[in-house]
Nucleic acid binder design. Sequence first.
DNA 1: TATGAATGAGTCTTCATTCAT
DNA 2: AATGAATGAAGACTCATTCAT
Lengths: 214, 214, 214, 214
Amino acid sequence: MKTKDRIIHGALELFNKNGERNITTNHIAAYLEISPGNLYYHFRNKEEIINGIFDNYAQELKTRFQPMVENEQPVMPSAQIMLSYLDSIFVLMWNYRFFYANLPDILSRDFGLKQKYTNAQESLNDNLIGIMNGFRTSGLITLEDDELLALTKTLHLVSSCWISYQTAQLSDKEITEAVVYQGMLQMLNVVRPMATEQGRKQILELEAHYKGRL
Amino acid sequence: MKTKDRIIHGALELFNKNGERNITTNHIAAYLEISPGNLYYHFRNKEEIINGIFDNYAQELKTRFQPMVENEQPVMPSAQIMLSYLDSIFVLMWNYRFFYANLPDILSRDFGLKQKYTNAQESLNDNLIGIMNGFRTSGLITLEDDELLALTKTLHLVSSCWISYQTAQLSDKEITEAVVYQGMLQMLNVVRPMATEQGRKQILELEAHYKGRL
Amino acid sequence: MKTKDRIIHGALELFNKNGERNITTNHIAAYLEISPGNLYYHFRNKEEIINGIFDNYAQELKTRFQPMVENEQPVMPSAQIMLSYLDSIFVLMWNYRFFYANLPDILSRDFGLKQKYTNAQESLNDNLIGIMNGFRTSGLITLEDDELLALTKTLHLVSSCWISYQTAQLSDKEITEAVVYQGMLQMLNVVRPMATEQGRKQILELEAHYKGRL
Amino acid sequence: MKTKDRIIHGALELFNKNGERNITTNHIAAYLEISPGNLYYHFRNKEEIINGIFDNYAQELKTRFQPMVENEQPVMPSAQIMLSYLDSIFVLMWNYRFFYANLPDILSRDFGLKQKYTNAQESLNDNLIGIMNGFRTSGLITLEDDELLALTKTLHLVSSCWISYQTAQLSDKEITEAVVYQGMLQMLNVVRPMATEQGRKQILELEAHYKGRL
DNA sequence: TATGAATGAGTCTTCATTCAT
DNA sequence: AATGAATGAAGACTCATTCAT
């Protein structure tokens, strides 16, 4: 792995463990056993490192969600889509949890990053709407158009705030993977009231899937 | 007002406007036109000021929500309770928005505060459960016990994350009151799928109430 | 002496001895045996220290030269004026030699300072014109108006560049007071070609005065 | 052009435009689109680059002024000599203006360079004396021996300090060619008081020459 | 000759906190 | 209660220079 990537990965690791605020550029350099000068050879400043991390995140986001939107006729059975979708959310939430946990702080310091973030989230939201729409046409959920938008927004909020919400709620510092799976279950709970008989079945299956991992 | 209270109020004001991270103890002292030494005469450190702010918050939380739980038979009509409840949430979210916007960061630095926060949130959640239970017995919503817990959790999450979620989403940094009202509407959207015919009516009224203020 | 003044004087001393470029804020703090934090308590940055030094310089400049301009009828004999004027130039050149030696560099970094400097120099030049005019009316020198302006400009240039010119010319680093006296003599040499018979006498006296000190 | 020369020329260009202090070795390398390593292959350090630039300067100085001294009987009419002399000064001042603008600073860091500079200036001064002597024997100026030395010194000072003097005086930072021409005029003003009737004529012609270029 | 990653001492600056008065 | 000068460890960042290839 090239130094530039090592820095991005090392920084992500430290940020996730200790919070971005508590990790200095010198910490990152020391952790990777390189000189601070070398770190600054690859990145002009700390902001740029965070941007680099974000770009990876945005790339993953794009890769994971784009395919589903393009096909109006889903190739997978609905529950599969939902599963895959929730898993993707999970992985991103987990891998970039420092980011979700400090969102306002991080974005307020870097307007360019904020715009990138907003764009990414908007397209994510669009995909969410697409997916929920698919569920409706597949007869898995029943709801009006405006309800669909409200549902989507709630799902988006739950997914992007779950980590931060749990970090605040829990008594010990460390977020475990189990916590994230609970987030998945919480999202299913949000969808359930709108589910049809058939939809409910699939949700039960998914719940079983995640409960098994707790 | 005593100096100790002036410090708490001044700090809260500055934190809300600029974010806790960007406000130093010297800023607070200068803003109140007192010396840094005097500030440290009243508070051993910055953490203690934040704790002081939090104690006020917890006190308000207690005052606003406790009465409703104690009476199993509510004295007010249900919609009134909901309105009063949402308004209380609103006032707290608004008055202590710096806190909601930096929750993980602030709590990670002060374990004692984290415990106080957890306790406060747990009793808030209990109250929420009580209120939703009341709604169910009043025939405003229909749901199973586990669904009720899920709903409560979602509501709690929406209310405690809304500020931070919006700060990240919005293009300009300042949170306005209108943004908070939209949070109230979002919470109604979460409840609506479970509402009975009668419940729906009351929700519509509440929506009108908040939409009028946007 | 207050710390603020100690900093200004200490910095001036170090700057004069080692050049402004080679003296950091930490050097100044160490020299005065105070903490860097304390230095920054009194001055926001290095620029402000230099500004503080300049303000002292400008004050001295004003004090030394203002009286001579106000009286059209000089109270002193002309040679006395010239002597006092040259001595003043000398003291300022000597006390603030770091400044003269790095003028372009220092001014290019601080626009506000550059403007203050320009103003100070303009009024100095005006005073010079006044003095030379007095010499002409006293019959010590003979010249046309435009020649008077040219002479003044040359004198101004010689006085403000002498230190820097000599620093560059001399083989050893340290500028001594003797070098500055030679500057005075050089200025007399510039005036001499315009001197009347009577003027020449006075110039000879002044020369004797400075040669005696070499 | 060889890399070594490209570095010297590129560095000179950047130094003149931005000041030596603000140009790092990396800037130079980037400007020339070579690697920093390559730059250090050709020069051991930054000082050596400045030395390289100085050697070019000294060479030009020698070339331009040596021929005139060797012939006791000048081959050109006096005004022509003066013009050629002033033009040479001008070109050097202009081409190496970064040097003139930071003389004390640059020389203080490199004793070897300082000696080279002193030697160059001494021989320049000798040449100046030769030229002025020629003017005297041609009947263009009238003055005593000691006056001649004083005049020469003043001319030397004006020419070597003009750039730095003007940089400090002017409100905008960029030195233009016009500024340098004004320096030439100032030098003529220094000579004029000693000029004979015939000399004055020639000075007027030269003045016209430079005023036309402003 | 040339590359470009790497070094590390040093620079300016910040800020929570202390302490003599 | 209050002042305000003082502390010092730490932070982000720079840049002349080196070195393996």
